[in-house]
Amino acid sequence: MLKVSTNPHMQTTRDTKSLMFDVVIALMPAAIAALLFFGVDALRVILTSVAACVMFEYLACRYWLKNGNTTTDYSAVITGLLLAYNLPSTMPCWMILIGAFVAIILAKICFGGLGCNIFNPALVGRVFLFISFPVQMTVWPKPYLFRMFSPDGETGATTLRMIKSISQTADSSQAMYAFEDLPEYWEMFVGNTGGCIGEVSALALLLGFGYMLWRRVISWHIPVVFIGTVLLLTSVLYWTTGNAKFLPLAHIFSGGLMLGAIFMATDYTTSPMTIKGQVIYAVMGGILTVIIRAFSAYPEGISFAILIMNAFVPLIDKFAVQRYFGEKK
């Protein structure tokens, strides 16, 4: 029997699964960096988180959602990886489970599953944990290259916390941290600083970014504009005020900016669909990041900035229209 179907009769082989798998590959350098700096603890966090996310996704698709099974398309794996990357390596497993539950069930499945969620699931999970367990979420073990186990639970502070506290103390002799305590820029770039397991190594994240660009998973617009906005804004503020909390390169290379701008702000479902919209989204996200980092109680603001911008995506999608062919500019 012949088949009847509508044109086009050819379709791309780059389906959702293959795109998602490329993102997983792009996230691997950061996983390796995490292993190098935080040892088996990092592996424990990553495995727990991924396993929990995939499990919740499977259960929800099997028993709740009716529109197809999305367990096998790696989207839950990405959520799991991103959630793990946003946690310190000392995070207890049961908290990770709670985070994974919030990420997959509350932030994704409750909205209708893959493609229907408004907020980035991994970020919702992270913020939930951050607010529920602030102590555990702000313990940063000191990174040591090639160590296997955490030596005596020695902890430190993130670079962003340091620069913020330098600026908060009027009398420099009483400051908790001084400029000398800051890690070298190359250390921040490679990842030998305190922080969440996946965010420390800018180098590894940039490798992943390069891979995604090469495989055309994402366009360069969101990450470049996002980071560019932060760089520009902090530079201007640093040169005009001289305040250490605006130290531009520290903002770029430490904290979650790279991870957020490259992997979380570019999440297909929760970012605008046109290039124009993506630029607006990234610029506003960058501004919000700097505002939250510099002027709020938290030293880190990227997750809040992205979540706030996620809420604006439907609006941006409605108004950031491309130019139609034949339309005057």
Partner: peptide, 28 residues
């Protein structure tokens, strides 16, 4: 290759808008 592939959820990637030579937004 020349049959319809399995349909999944729209992931709102915007690739249709990027591919449209008229600048339409097929997803919308």
């Amino acid at each position: 290759e020349f049959n319809k592939h399995h349909q999944t959820n729209c992931i709102r990637c915007g690739k249709c808008a990027g591919a449209c030579p008229i600048g339409l937004r097929p997803f919308a």
